[in-house]
Design a protein around this nucleic acid. Sequence first.
RNA 1: GGGCUUAUAGCUCAGCUGGUUAGAGCGCUACACUGAUAAUGUAGAGGUCCGAGGUUCGAGUCCCCGUAAGCCCA
Length: 1099
Amino acid sequence: MQYKEYKGLNYAEVADEVLEFWKENDVFQKSIETREGKPTFTFYEGPPSANGTPGIHHVMARTVKDIFCRYKTLQGFQVKRKGGWDTHGLPVELQVEKELGITKEDIGKKISVEEYNQRCRETVMKFKGEWDDLTQKMGYWVDLDDPYVTFDRNYMESLWYLLKKFFDKGLLYKGYTIQPYSPAAGTGLSSHELNQPGTYRDVKDTSVTAQFRKEGTENEFFLAWTTTPWTLAANSALAIGEKIDYVKVRTYNQYTHEEIFVVLAKDRVSAYFSKDAEGLDFDGYKKDGKKIPYEILEEFKGKDIVGQKYEQLLPYVKPDGPAFEVIPGDFVTTEDGTGIVHVSATFGADDQRVCQQAGMSPILVKDEEGNDAPIVDKQGRYVKEITDFAGMYVKNEYYPDGEAPDKSLDVQIAIKLKEENRAFKVEKYEHSYPHCWRTDKPVLYYPLDSWFIKTTALKDRLVKLNNTINWKPKSTGVGRFGNWLENLVDWNLSRSRYWGTPLPIWVTEDRAELKCIGSIAELKEEVAKSVEAGFMNEQIGDDFDLHRPYVDDVVLVSENGKKMFREPDLIDVWFDSGAMPYAQWHYPFENKDIFDANYPADFIAEGVDQTRGWFFTLHAIAGLLFDKVAFKNVIANGLVLDKNGNKMSKRLGNAINPFETLSKYGPDATRWYMIANANPWDNLKFNLDGVVEVQRRFLGTLQNTYSFFALYANLDSFNYKEGDIPVENRTESDRWILSKLNSLIKAVDAAYEDYEPTKAARLIQDFTIDDLSNWYVRLNRKRFWRGEYNDDKRAAYQTLYKCLETIAKLSSPIAPFYMDRLYQDLNAVSGLDNAISVHLTDFPVADEAVINVDLEERMALAQTISSLVHSLRKKDTIKVRQPLSKILLPVLNDKFKRQVQSVEDLILSEVNIKKIEFIDDESGVLVKNVKPNFRKLGKEYGPKMKEISAKINQFKPEEVAELEDKNELTLALKDGPITITLEDVEITYQDIPGWSVATEGRVTVALDITLTEDLKKEGIARDLVNRVQNLRKDMGLEVQDKIKINIEKNTDLVNAALEANREYICQETQALSLDISETVVDGNLLEMDEHRLKVKIEA
RNA sequence: GGGCUUAUAGCUCAGCUGGUUAGAGCGCUACACUGAUAAUGUAGAGGUCCGAGGUUCGAGUCCCCGUAAGCCCA
C-alpha cells in the first residue's frame, strides 16, 4: 500500500471529501459513543436565532467552541453537544410585522394574537437551513438532530418550573421600573418607538436651580438643577460624581437677597457667577440682584460629601424609609447644571437605579386600591396629596385644548421656591425632549409595573460564585462582569409582547391572592378546580399550547373562590436562554440523570456582548436557584471586524460572506487563520489575505513536507511495520526533532488546557515551518533519497512520520478536515492506530525521556552558527556550493565547546565547510567585550548602577584577565569599594583581528575564505552535479532512474576536478558512468562561472 | 457619562515577574539555492513602542492624566 500523493491540493475540496467521509462513517457520533462511560466534559451551546442569516463572526465563535470540544474528546472525555435555537423575542416580532406590513397596534385588530404567533413560529426557523449548512461546512460538531428549541412546550414547562422556584423562594415580585410613558395615550413606549425619527424635539422648559438645605445648618444649601421642576416634589436624593471637585461658595440669593452658602461643582462656578463679582465687598451689596458678590470658601471631592443629609424641599409626601442624602451617581457630569443632580426614584431610570443602590426610598402615595403609586397619576396629574397643586397636569400640553393655565405647574413651583428662598436661579432652557409619536405630546418617564427577580438579594453570593469561574480573558470576568454584579439591580422580567414565554402567574382582581404555576400538570389541577367552580367550561387538552393567547383564556379559582386572571406579561427572552441548562433536558420532568451529569458546564463560549446577556442569565439562575455556577470556564470572544477595523455591516457592503470564504479557501485555512491571527477575545480584523497566507505558509508547508515524505517512503515501501528504531540509536537531528516534538506536545497541551487556542496554533505552526520543514527536512533531505533502505533511512522515515502524525493530532481541533486527511493518509499505510479518523484517536502524550534540553540548546547553536556563516559567505560573495576549509570559533566555555562539537557535522554540511577550529584565550588574538549583568547587579546595587556600569565598560584587558583569573575584582566607587565576580558581567568575543567575523548574541564566527586547488575542484564538481540534476529534471527522469554522463574534454582544472570527484558526482546524480571524451555531439553547453562544459546525458 | 478592551515596522502580531542593540511573519529590495521547486534560504531597508507627566540607577513593560478605535451599559 502506498501513501497517497497529490498534485496540487485543493483544501476546499479536501474539506468536502472529508465531510462526506464523516457523514458516511458517523464519525461525530462515534467520537461520542466511543467515550461512553468515560468522564463527561460538559459544553453548553448558546442558542443562535435562526431568523437571520449567519455571518463570518459565527464561524469565529463556533470555531472556538468546536476546538475545545474536540480537544477534550481526544483527551478521552465524553463531550455531548446539544444544539439549540433561540426562538422568542422582539426581533422575531419585528420581522413578522415587517413582512405583514403591520404594527403592534394592529395585533388583536387586523390580525389575531393566535395568527400572529403562528407567523412568528414559522418565521423563526426561516434560515435554519442556512445555519445547518454553515455548521456542517465549517466543521462545527454539534448535535443538530435533537436540538432544544425555546418555544417548545417541554422547554417552556421547564421555564415555568424555574419561575415557580423563584416565586416560592420569594425572589419573584412585582415592582416598578421607570419607562417612557405617554399619559395622553395611556401607554408605555418601547425604546424602539422612541427611536422613531421626529420623536426628539427642541422645547423650551422652565428650569430651576433649587436650594436644598443641608441638615443642621441655617443657610447652607446644595444646588441642583432640573428641567422638570414638577419632579422636585418626588425628590429622594441628590447625586454627585465622586471624582468631581466641588466648592462651597458664600453669596446672596438673587431673589430674596439673603446671605447663603451654596455647594456646587467647581467647574460650574463660572456658569452661575460672573467673574467680576468675585471678591466684591459683601457689605457693599445693594440687594438689587446685580453684581452679587461671592467667594469660594472650601474645595473638596464629591466622595467627601457622600452621606450628608438635607431637608426635604417640598415636604408634601414623606418617604417610607431613608431619603434625602447625598449619594454617588455615575451619570453626573459638569456639562450643565451644578454638578449635583436632583434624583427622583419615581421619575428617572438612572435615578431609580442609584436610589436602589444607595438605599434611598421613593416618594410614594397609596392609590384607591391601597397600592403604592407615584405622585403623578396615569393621566399626568398631581395626586391630591400635593395639596397646593392637586389635580394639575404636570405638563401644559396634557390639558384639553384651551384649558391650560397661563402659568404651568413648573412655573408655579418655581415661584413658590423663589418665595421660600429655595430657588437659586430660574430660567427658560431649550433642550431636546422625546415626544409620543401618536399624540405628539411630551413623554414622561414614569414608573410602570413589572415583575422582577430579586437578584440583588443574593448579590454577594453571585459575586463569590463568579470569583470561582475561569474567565478568558480574566478582565471580562473581574471587570466587565464583576462590576456589573457589583452594581446589580433587580432583573426586570416583564415584556409587554406576544411571542414569548408567558409569565405563569394568576392574580385575583383585588390582587390579594396570587398563584404561580410550575408545570402543566399543576395547571391542569388548577383548571379542574376552576371548572368545578364554574369559571371554565372544560379541562385544557393534552397538547395545550403554553403560548398566548391560549394561556390568557385560562381563568383559575383562588383559595377564597375568586376568579384569577393571568398577569399579561411575557418574560424576558434572556430568561429563555439562561435557563437552557435545565430546559434543554426538560428538567426536572425528564432526564434527571443526564442533567445531573451535565451540570454545571465545564465550558461555554460566546461573544463578549453576551456578558450581560447570556453569561449573566446563566449565572443568575444557577446562583439564585441552585447556589452553583452554571459554567466553570468561559471564553468571551471579541468581534470580527473588516480588514480596516470597521464593523462589518450588510449596509456598508464590507461584510464577509462566510459561505463564499469557506468554499474558496476551505474551512481549515479559515479556522486556522481566525485562531492563529489574534486571541479570540481580541477583535479580529478579518483579512482574506491572511487566510491565503495561512494556506500557503502553514498548510502548504505541511503538505509539502508530507509530499516529500510520501514520495520517498513509497519508493522504499516504508510502512512503519518494522518496529521502532530506539531513539538513542537515531541521529542527532532525529533526536533533536523528536525532542522538539515532545516539547511541543507538552506546550500545546498546556495551551489548550488553559483555553489559549491562539498559543497552541502558533506553537504548532512555528514548529512545522521552522523546526520541521526548514531545518530538519532540509538538513536530512539526502538521507531520504540516497542509498539503500537501511536502518538510518528507516529512522529518518519513522522520525518524520511521527512528526507529521503528531502535528495532525495536535492540530485536528483547529483544522479538523485537512488534519484528518493527513492523518488518514499516513495511518492508512502504517496502520499504527486502530482508528478511521484522527478525531477518534487519543491526544498525544509527551515522552519526557525524549525531551533533551541540552540537545535543543546545541541545535540552536548550530542554527546560529550556520546563519552567521551564511551571512559571512554572503558578505564575501562566496556561494554555498563552493566548499571552504574552515571557520574559527572562539570558545566561551567547556560546555559551549562540547555542544558545538556534537553538532559539528551538521554545521559543516549545512554551510559546506571542512572543519571548525576552536580558539581560546591562549591564542591571544581574541578581543573581549565586557558588559555588566544589569539584572544581577541592579538587584544588589540599585542606585549605584550608573557608576558601576561606567566602570565596567572601561575595563582594560588586564582587569578582565584579573576578574577571570581570581573570579573577583574590587571596584572603587565613590561610596566605597565593592567586589564583583564573573557572574556580574557578561564576557563575549567581539572580534578576531584580521578575520572577517560575524556575531550574534554570545556567538562569534570567523570564516577562512582561502581557496585551495582542491577546494576549487570540489566546487566545480558540485556545480556540475547541480547542473546535471537540472538536466535530469528537464529530461523528465524519475528520481531512481540511472544515467550515463559524457563530458567533452575541458581545461586542466576542470578535467582534474572531474577525475578527483568522479565517485561523488556519480553517486549524487545516479550516474552509472562518467566519461571524458575528446568531443561530445549533441551535448548541452553548461555555464558554470568562468567554465563552460559540454555535457551529454543518456538515460 | 460609566465599565471593559485595544494601540509596538507599510500590514498582522510576539515581547514572561522592569535590565540596556525592541522581535517574527507578510509585503518591499538585493542576493543565493534548485531532486520539497507554483517551494526554499540569507541579508537589507523600515520603529518619537499613541501622547504628556511620574516612580526608578534603568520603563515598550509599573502608576497617573489624556487621545483614538471598538464593545457593553446609561
